[in-house]
Design a protein around this nucleic acid. Structure first.
Lengths: 250, 250
DNA sequence: CATATTATTTATCATATGATCAACAGCGGC
DNA sequence: GCCGCTGTTGATCATATGATAAATAATATG
């Protein structure tokens, strides 16, 4: 009646972990003793996967159980759950942005569609990822400021460049002459949203999503570059992109 | 040292609620006695807002506190937290889809851009909403099946119609002759993703998002209808929309 | 092989949380 | 104005959870 459901599971868990990657333990009862560095790495990578799956409200006991260790051991390596969670944030968010990506958008030697497809494909390699997407959404819901900081980078390194290059591609005035408006930035969010919503469908809604990301991204880009021309031009000329009733008819 | 931090707060909370909408209580100490129907309504609507804000892991004590009632009272109206949460799901998801929306997309008397803008604007009235977006994302992360069921409706009532109407608008063969492929449905997700990601930025990331939804939606639609033509045609003709290297150059 | 070091575990604490029940008190009927 | 019904609360329970400390055992060193 008063069973916690954990006592006997340790051996089972240990065996389970062995099937994945760790050195095989001769007997399920033997204690595994790692160097502090290795243990910490195991805890952090396990915590990342664990919190990505279950959210940050999930318990340290549950995490320890999944790691095949006891709960107090976590406190040998991290003074509190909060610190461990901070570490997970850092590990997932830090250095996730690769500076070389920026160049992919800006290289005017290549046609814009190709550049954007190349960029978003490279970006997808890093970001179409269970851990990344879920941690990002979890922390967003929780109101962590890390989201805002990351999205500021996206704005500076992706959205604004996309607007500038789209202007250049169709011979519109430079941002020096007519600065980017919020409405124009919102256009770039169109592409970015279509791109990232695919990841949300896959990893937040756990829907089966079409296999070829390359293909889908190329289509996103094509739709955007073809479709945004007219809107961007209107936006710059009129200061608004309101489509007159006449224009509905095309 | 052993304080729970709740004892004295009840009066304060009661006062706080009074500022919002409830009948003013002459004395902060008096007990408020409602009819079961009214009390239940208060609890449900309070729970919706509360869980949307804090997630479903948030505690019944915290909820009761915010409602200005004591925690045991919740159990007079709901046998368990789980049942209350179920009720919140039902309340938020049920009858959220308005059948008349479907007609907005299908009315071939009007140009497609106008139809889609009208539809997505109407849909935004219901769905660009703090509670809706966050509950949807929370339940998605939690793996609740309600998401999948809702998205099946979206597919049937929005994505497939959008594909059909886009075909019709540019004289492509009917779905009777060439059925919709997953790739083609993925095109419609482009528009839907751009649309819904705006809500995610606003209510999940809590970013300041541009004011005029009407405007932004009209732009989304314009980009999509203008941009998706070529891709859809290629998709149907070639069975794939792979853009040849030559075509990059436009 | 004996011993010291320390990674890991067992036992435990304080508080938090879902849930229950008897006591209290607002409100309608007489 | 008193009384009974019942909406509401205070007290409490069992378990869960973050955190701590002492006991145990794996590994290195001599």
């Amino acid at each position: 009646m008063t069973t916690t459901g954990f006592e006997g599971d340790q051996i089972r868990m240990a065996e389970q972990r062995n099937t994945s990657k760790r050195a095989p333990r001769k007997q399920g009862t033997t204690r595994r003793r790692l160097s502090p560095e290795d243990r910490e790495k195991e805890i952090v990578s396990g915590a990342i996967e664990f919190f990505a799956r279950h959210g940050f409200e999930a318990t340290t006991r549950h995490l320890a159980h999944e790691l095949g260790i006891t709960q107090p051991l976590l406190y040998r390596y991290f003074p509190s759950k909060e610190v461990l969670v901070e570490r997970v944030y850092d590990e997932v968010f830090m250095q996730r942005w690769r500076p070389e990506w920026e160049g992919l958008i800006l290289d005017r030697e290549r046609p814009l569609k190709e550049r954007l497809t190349t960029f978003y494909s490279a970006y997808a390699d890093a970001v179409y990822d269970f851990v990344w997407v879920r941690i990002f959404v979890f922390s967003g819901l929780k109101g962590i400021d890390i989201n805002g900081r990351y999205l500021a980078i996206i704005r500076e390194k992706v959205l604004e460049p996309v607007c500038r290059e789209l202007r250049h591609a169709q011979g519109l005035p430079d941002v020096d002459r007519i600065p980017l408006s919020e409405e124009e930035i919102e256009l770039a969010w169109n592409l970015h949203g279509a791109f990232f919503y695919r990841a949300i469908r896959r990893y937040v809604y756990t829907m089966p999503v079409i296999a070829s990301d390359e293909q889908a991204i190329a289509n996103d880009v094509s739709i955007f570059v073809e479709g945004a021309r007219k809107v961007q031009r209107q936006l710059i000329e009129n200061g608004t992109a309101t489509v007159s009733q006449r224009e509905w008819v095309q």
